[in-house]
Nucleic acid binder design. Sequence first.
DNA 1: GCATTAACCACAG
DNA 2: CTGTGGTTAATGC
Length: 231
Amino acid sequence: MNTRKKGNKCSECTLTLFSPNTLSRSDVELLSKNCSEAEYSRGEMLFKQDSLTSHIIFIKTGLVKVHMRGPGGKDQILKITSPNSFLGIPTVMGDKINHYSATALEKTIACVIDIDIFRHFISRNGRFAHRIIHSVCSDELALFHRFVNQAQKHLHGRVADAILYFSNEIYQEDEFNLPLTRSDLGDLTGTSRESVTRTLSEFKNEGIISINGKNLTILRKDFLIYISERG
DNA sequence: GCATTAACCACAG
DNA sequence: CTGTGGTTAATGC
């Protein structure tokens, strides 16, 4: 496998921009020798639950779902990862085996980084480590919120949350194409695909959103927020 | 009891 | 992959 394609310099990669002024020139040089850019198409797995890991992945463009299969065999989406973030840190730092899978939701370009070099940066470069801890912590906070919301809100609130999440966090638009199937939305909101379908058409009938297929437009964001807040 | 919520199942585009 | 309808279990008046 070609690790350094012509014109594919680490110094120009968004990874080095991830935390400005933290990686020295020699760090970047080292990184160049231990990472490789890869492209994943929709539905392709970046890594799979229960398999061994040997890499950290940095998402440059695209969208990835991080999901875990539970004891009942049902999938739960833990989070959706957008560009400029790392994937697989908990696995690499906490265990050797992936506790979850990662699957591309759309065409995704990512940098695959050797774990030893990643650990090296963490232990030698305080600024880099700080930046990583910061991102791991915001992930954890976001997860705490989702966890509580999931447990305490009703179906409508959870689906409203998901719509607002895509609109606010991912697309910054009121109109967008859902990157997930209904079944995936069920896995994300902890419900069944049928309930997602029903809830979305109820929102549509009530004039809160307009939806056909994957294309969704938020018509009454205030209502959506209201529903999100009161289960 | 009766109503509501939401999962599960089956079948049809 | 989606939408729909019927059934069913749990929970709350």
